[in-house]
């Protein structure tokens, strides 16, 4: 378990440092790149929890698609090289308050739900068993049975966003 703890410490430190840099850097493309570091480290944390499927989807969706789109937006609109003093504004204190509130809520939810629970040890568990319990098949089954309604709601939401984007981007 020592190796996992060390890896967790390194990843957590990397995530936090990069997250702070995302909001403090004055270069918008650098901010996006630090965001990549944050999201990729979170993906690595999922691998530490032996949730490979979630980790791969995290990289695929967040690193591979969302930040790429963000960079596209930046590059096609104002690809200023170097620093930009306009990146910051007076609403940062409001942002900080909301962020603290979110941190408090999430911490409370996690502590309330799990408390002192420990993850079961994976010593001697075969990969086939692991796959059956928490592999991609298990995730798929859960999405299409227990979480079917949220899944469908999210799909409709995404479709609405897609149609909305096309309507907004049309020339007329």
């Amino acid at each position: 378990m020592v190796a996992q703890n060390i890896a967790f410490g390194v990843l957590a430190a990397a995530t936090s440092l990069a997250a702070i840099r995302v909001v403090t850097t004055r270069n918008v493309v650098h901010a996006a790149l630090y965001l990549v570091v944050v999201l990729a480290s979170v993906g690595a944390l999922y691998i530490l929890l032996t949730a490979e499927f979630v980790a791969a989807v995290q990289i695929l969706v967040y690193v591979g698609a969302i930040v790429v789109l963000l960079l596209f937006g930046v590059m096609l609109t104002k690809a200023t090289l170097g620093e930009d003093d306009q990146l910051d504004n007076d609403q940062r204190w409001l942002g900080a308050v909301i962020a603290l509130f979110l941190l408090g809520t999430l911490s409370f939810v996690l502590v309330d739900a799990f408390g002192d629970d420990k993850l079961p040890s994976l010593e001697g568990v075969s990969r086939a068993t692991l796959e059956a319990q928490r592999g991609s098949g298990a995730v798929g089954d859960a999405i299409f049975s227990t979480f079917l309604v949220p899944f469908e709601v999210v799909s409709v939401l995404l479709l609405a966003a897609l149609v909305g984007a096309i309507v907004l981007a049309r020339r007329d």
Partner: peptide, 12 residues
């Protein structure tokens, strides 16, 4: 265990 997804993640 996620081989093919790894391929897609790397290509993105």
């Amino acid at each position: 265990p996620i081989g093919v997804l790894f391929l897609l993640a790397m290509s993105s």
